[in-house]
Design a protein around this nucleic acid. Structure first.
Length: 567
DNA sequence: GCCGTTTTCGGCCCGACTGTTTTCAGTCG
């Protein structure tokens, strides 16, 4: 799967074009990169099945980018990228990835201080050299240092989406090998942690050597880190993947051990010791070394007199002590996706395409929620266009009677806590997702008040991506979450769990907090193309990590009950 | 470079915020 590699090239080209101040093109390249990055099937398959013509059908991909994609698939590179790199001083592109630094400042830092990499940048900031430049000050120096550490975190941990895609791809490859009986994914991918560091795979096979050979010679391996008789590690792109071949009698023990988390395992192993056992990756043993269990995880937990914790719960945050663990919301429980965009604002597909995709997913209902007028950059809809879009939805509803199409909006919350459309307009909609897009002032009390005003307005269904955080890129809005969650519980306003891989907003601990306050939830994808509808799995995973059951989430309800619940 | 409920050519990427400024430049969504 070369999607990520190609998307990275297009992002890179976008950055370089931006440094050169070429208008429009950077956005076009980014849009195409996003499409390719979130595609569920390998880009090489799209090309193999339909050539350049099929590539051009992808949202944001036209003649030029389709041809460049073809060039990449045929030659492994894109000439224009190298030409661009020649024209830009070293380090400028890298610096642009630091939050707070754009093309102008990056060029200036390179020119004035001869900064050629992030280490130079760190040193210059620490020694107070940057503040002396025109346009910089003490504060921007601090921001650069903060940005550097945020960036470093992002380098280490990848998105869960990427981890899952690659883990599943490797899993299915290994399954095709003769002699392989079972393949499982462990580690933080199995726990569905919002970011992952590497991929752990476990295999039972009669021919371990063959598995090792296969794994280390796959076409997308960029480096072999280790290769032994039963364990190998490789880099795929810059993501590490490990595989181990195990005896069936140790399979469950290894799965348990390497699923973690570390904190969970420490507790479980301590309990084993207290009960006169020893637990390691080969099994549960008596003190004398006699094998007691290990074939399945269930056997081990049972022998230790513990409830079986689903992997998403294994963080040592109460799952060991809980009298009764929750019955987590199943991965197929969602009956409708209620936050998505179309070409009317910044989405990549038409309304009809989104509807068809939702039907294909087996949903009973969906909501179209394009941006409101303040989101100018996202081509937000003014009242006139909104109402026109509603007419289109009416027409589509007649065409597709098998699914309920809700008229909605992702309405911007303004600085003063008012909404971007007047109540009279909002009343005409079936569902209103309120979103804070501007960062506002960093004033906790004001931010809390703003949310309370929105929740108590009686005009909104839900609060979308409530904290506004972007994983490894942007800090959450600072507000009194408990107060806001309590207000949601009181007013029956839903807290959205946004499934977008870069958001996963709310995070697990906040979900648990809100659940304890009886706040109601809705899980949505915030899709910008039909492909994004698959993100729902990530939102459900997040909900499970927050200990939610199906009954806690409104869009697990069948259509009739759902419609009356959001009234 | 992409796209078509305003257009197959000419729009699109504007406005708020921040920090550094004494009236504005750069960044970000």
């Amino acid at each position: 799967m070369k999607n990520q590699e190609l998307a990275t090239i297009f992002y890179e080209m976008a950055d370089l074009l931006e440094i050169l101040q070429v208008p429009w093109k950077p956005n076009a390249f980014r849009k195409a990169a996003r499409t390719i990055e979130t595609l569920s099937k390998p880009i090489e398959d799209v090309y193999a099945n339909g050539g350049v013509k099929a590539l051009k059908e992808l949202p944001g991909v036209g003649d030029a980018i389709a041809n460049k994609t073809e060039e990449f698939l045929k030659t492994g590179k894109i000439k224009e990228l190298h030409e661009l790199e020649q024209r830009i001083p070293k380090g400028v592109d890298e610096m642009m990835h630091i939050p707070g630094l754009g093309p102008k400042k990056a060029v200036m830092l390179n020119k004035e201080l001869h900064i050629k990499n992030l280490r130079d940048l760190q040193r210059a900031a620490e020694t107070g050299k940057i503040r002396k430049l025109a346009g910089f000050g003490e504060k921007s120096e601090q921001e650069i240092l903060k940005g550097l550490s945020l960036h470093a975190q992002g380098q280490e941990r990848k998105s869960l989406l990427m981890g899952l895609d690659i883990a599943r791809e490797l899993q299915s490859r290994l399954k095709t090998l003769a002699g392989v009986e079972r393949v499982e994914v462990a580690g933080s991918v199995r726990r569905r942690k919002e970011t992952i560091a590497d991929i752990d795979l476990f295999v039972t096979s009669k021919n371990a050597a063959k598995v090792m050979d296969f794994f280390t010679t796959m076409s997308d391996v960029t480096r072999i880190l280790a290769k032994g008789p039963t364990k190998s590690a490789v880099l795929i792109g810059n993501l590490q993947a490990d595989v181990r071949v195990l005896e069936p009698k140790s399979f469950g023990a290894a799965l348990q051990y390497f699923t973690g988390s570390k904190e969970h395992n420490v507790r479980v192993r301590q309990i084993a010791i207290d009960k006169g056992f020893k637990l390691n990756e080969y099994g549960l043993f008596t003190r004398a070394g006699k094998y007691v269990a290990g074939k399945t995880e269930q056997d081990i937990y049972k022998k230790l007199n513990l409830q079986y914790p689903e992997p998403e719960l294994r963080e040592n945050t109460g799952e060991i002590e809980a009298k009764k663990l929750p019955t987590l919301i199943p991965y197929d429980a969602i009956k409708g996706d209620c936050h998505m965009h179309t070409r009317w604002s910044d989405g990549g597909n038409t309304t009809e395409e989104m509807v068809r995709a939702a039907i294909e997913k087996g949903y009973e209902y969906l909501a179209i929620t394009d941006h409101s007028k303040s989101s100018i950059i996202a081509n937000g809809l003014d009242e006139k266009r909104l109402l026109k879009h509603c007419e289109e939805i009416d027409t589509l509803q007649k065409k597709f009677p098998q699914i309920v199409i809700l008229k909605g909006s992702e309405v911007d919350i303004r600085k003063d806590g008012s909404l971007d459309y007047k109540p009279a307009i909002l009343k005409q909609l079936d569902i209103v997702m309120a979103s804070a897009h501007q960062r506002f002032t960093p004033d906790r009390a004001a931010a809390t008040q703003r949310y309370l005003k929105v929740i108590q307005s009686g005009n909104v269904t839900a609060i979308s991506h409530p904290t506004g955080r972007l994983i490894n890129a942007r800090e959450p809005i600072d507000f009194d979450f408990e107060k806001v969650a309590q207000a949601c519980a009181d007013a029956n306003v839903f807290l959205e769990i946004n499934s977008s891989p870069s958001r996963l907003d709310l995070k697990d601990s906040l979900i648990r907090t809100a659940k304890e306050l009886n706040a109601p939830f809705i899980i949505n994808t915030d899709s910008h193309t039909t492909e994004h509808l698959r993100f729902i799995e990530l939102g459900i995973a997040q909900a499970r990590r927050g200990w939610l059951e199906a009954k806690d989430v409104v869009n697990t309800l069948p259509r009739k009950k759902f419609l009356s619940a959001i009234k």
